[in-house]
């Protein structure tokens, strides 16, 4: 009986270990619930494939609308998965423990955003060029699309996490998240889709991609702080 009373831990770990434990746990949970992960992935594919049915198979128009279609679908797919990011932790009390961790909450939130991006963002980046082929996009445009998504989808996860945190435990949260977060996504949509259409018409894409990189850095600064503040408000 005595031994169990003060089994002092082996070692106090630093910030990086705590950060990676948050990411690890979320990835493990995502793997355990693979169905959730695939729904947003298939949602992306289905939404993109709907447009040729609606607009018609004519390659020129498809090539024209492809950048916008793929990016809007990416926005919606990543937003679909946001609700899962925090809602379960809020319900079962684990989010409280995260708030009470001795490490800064904004960095732990960054960990959750990273986990969300790895689970929903990366599959979009990999499959998007494939779907681009359906829209008869040339090779370089597909590369720019993948690169644009690589820079843009983390921003979607980060800004989306703020919306998810603000709507924790609120009625109709999934609809509300869209209303709160989509306006914030607009700059990413403009420059992401703009990059692909510039690539299609052979123009330079450096400007667009550097703007996306700027948004990435900008949201990496404000999103964790804002999400942490929102979580503290929700947990109160």
């Amino acid at each position: 009986m005595e031994a169990v009373l003060d089994a002092t831990p082996d070692r106090r770990t630093g910030l990086l270990a705590v950060f990676s434990s948050v990411v690890q746990r979320d990835l493990l949970l995502a793997m355990r619930r693979r169905a959730d992960v695939l729904t947003s992935f298939f949602f992306f594919i289905i939404v993109v494939s709907l447009f040729p049915l609606g607009v018609g198979p004519e390659p020129n128009t498809l090539r024209e609308i492809a950048p916008g279609v793929v990016w809007v679908a990416a926005l919606l797919a990543s937003m679909l998965a946001l609700h899962r990011l925090l809602a379960a932790d809020y319900a079962d009390g684990t989010l409280e423990q995260l708030v009470l961790s001795p490490k800064p909450l904004s960095l732990l939130m960054l960990g959750k955003m990273l986990a969300h991006w790895l689970v929903t963002g990366i599959p979009l980046i990999l499959i998007a060029p494939l779907l681009g082929l359906q829209f008869d996009l040339p090779g370089p445009a597909l590369a720019v699309m993948a690169l644009g998504l690589l820079l843009g989808t983390p921003v979607l996860s980060m800004l989306g996490a703020i919306g998810a945190a603000l709507t924790l435990g609120v009625r109709g949260a999934s609809g509300l998240i869209a209303l709160l977060v989509l306006p914030l996504y607009i700059p990413v949509l403009i420059f992401g889709a703009g990059a692909v259409s510039a690539a299609v018409s052979g123009l330079s894409v450096e400007g667009h991609l550097s703007m996306l990189a700027a948004f990435l850095l900008f949201s990496a600064v404000i999103a964790p702080w804002a999400a942490a503040a929102a979580v503290r408000i929700a947990v109160e």
């Binding site: 831990p9 770990t13 705590v18 746990r25 949970l29 379960a88 079962d92 423990q97």
Partner: peptide, 21 residues
Amino acid sequence: KDDLSSLENLRFALAQDGCRV
């Protein structure tokens, strides 16, 4: 967490508080 085993739950709860066991 329902999807994690009690061992994993305990390990992550402690890791989150900054102690590896």
